[in-house]
């Protein structure tokens, strides 16, 4: 109340009172406390990462106490629960790469085609409808896509191309196709953003010189947006490598060391999900194996993510 009166007196112009203090009327500990709380929430994300690394690292160290590092990385037989057990990760690593590659083979042309159409050809009205619908596709739970692959895609493809499904209903190629469906909106959305961020002046200059729409899209806009487009592909690849439910349902469970799309394969993610759901005791070699495979998966996706983040940052810096 006193403060108010002082200020009031100034407002009225005349009074000969001493000027009010410029020092804080209270130390405002609350503000500092709030800032501390907010900062600790942000730091929680760092703790999460640390926890992930620790939880992967400790059992992985135990694992390599029993299994040789080269036996793991370069061994060609994967049978961790058999006697005698074999811990060669190559079959499931190749399984992961195989399903991801088949997925990308489908998703890259479809995703980039959609992106070019959205950013260069679509009318604002069409865009306003198609983009959200694609986002819905991105939001469909992967278990649903997996079921679609298992119950629909697999029999249909087996009927048309029998060589694609050796052991019905499981197939690396069909799993890849289902994953690809899920990757299309990721590629389309990020690449579309990158291409739309290309300054309009560049397009107009090209049109002004009489270029066709196709040439503007492929030779002007596409190259200018290339870092964002590559980022979208890398992110999609990282999602494919980390995808679990689709491969669990469609790819089968046989650790075959092959890139054959018709073969059934076991991926790293499927191995983790399958093994961890069973009844396993902490500290057993099977338990540690889950973490060793998890560590490899984490490192792979981390490298891809950091690469993608760098690229995205680059194109945002250029245009914003």
């Amino acid at each position: 109340m006193e403060a108010r009166d002082t200020i009031g007196a100034f407002g009225r112009g005349g009074a000969d009172r001493p000027p009010p203090s410029l020092e804080a009327s209270s130390p405002r500990y609350g503000e500092k406390l709030i800032k501390g709380f907010l900062a600790s929430c942000a730091i929680l994300s760092v703790i999460t990462t640390t926890a992930i690394v620790i939880s992967l690292l400790l059992p992985t160290a135990d694992f390599f106490g029993e299994v040789g590092f080269t036996d793991f990385l370069f061994g060609t037989e994967w049978a961790p629960t058999f006697t005698p057990a074999a811990f060669g990760v190559l079959p499931i690593l190749v399984g992961t790469i195989s399903t991801s590659l088949w997925g990308m083979l489908f998703a890259v042309p479809m995703g980039l085609g959609s992106a070019i159409w959205l950013s260069e050809y679509a009318s604002p009205k069409a865009r306003k409808v198609v983009k959200p619908v694609l986002e819905v596709l991105a939001g469909i739970p992967t278990v649903a896509i997996g079921i679609f692959g298992l119950v629909f895609l697999s029999p249909v493809i087996e009927g048309v191309f029998p060589f694609m499904v050796n052991v019905p209903p499981f197939s690396a190629g069909v799993a890849g196709l289902a994953i690809g469906l899920m990757l299309v909106p990721i590629i389309a959305s990020i690449s579309d953003d990158a291409m739309r961020a290309v300054p309009g002046g560049l397009r107009e200059a090209a049109y002004g010189l009489g270029s066709t729409k196709m040439k503007v899209a492929t030779r002007v806009v596409f190259p200018a947006a290339i870092s964002g487009i590559i980022a979208s592909l890398v992110l999609a690849g990282s999602r494919a490598v980390g995808e679990t439910m689709v491969v669990l349902l469609v790819a089968g469970a046989s650790p075959n060391l092959t890139f054959d799309p018709g073969s059934s394969v076991l991926t790293m993610t499927a191995f983790i999900a399958q093994t961890a759901t069973g009844d396993i005791s902490t500290g057993s070699i099977t338990y540690d194996t889950i973490f060793a495979v998890g560590a490899l998966l984490f490192v792979l996706t981390l490298i891809m993510n950091i690469f993608a983040i760098r690229l995205v940052r680059k194109y945002r810096e250029v245009y914003e």
Binding site: P19, S21, L22, E23, A24, S25
Partner: peptide, 15 residues
């Protein structure tokens, strides 16, 4: 400001 340095160490910008 009325003889007080606005950038003095004890001065509170909110005030």
């Amino acid at each position: 400001y009325h003889g007080q340095n606005l950038y003095g160490s004890k001065v509170d910008p909110v005030q």
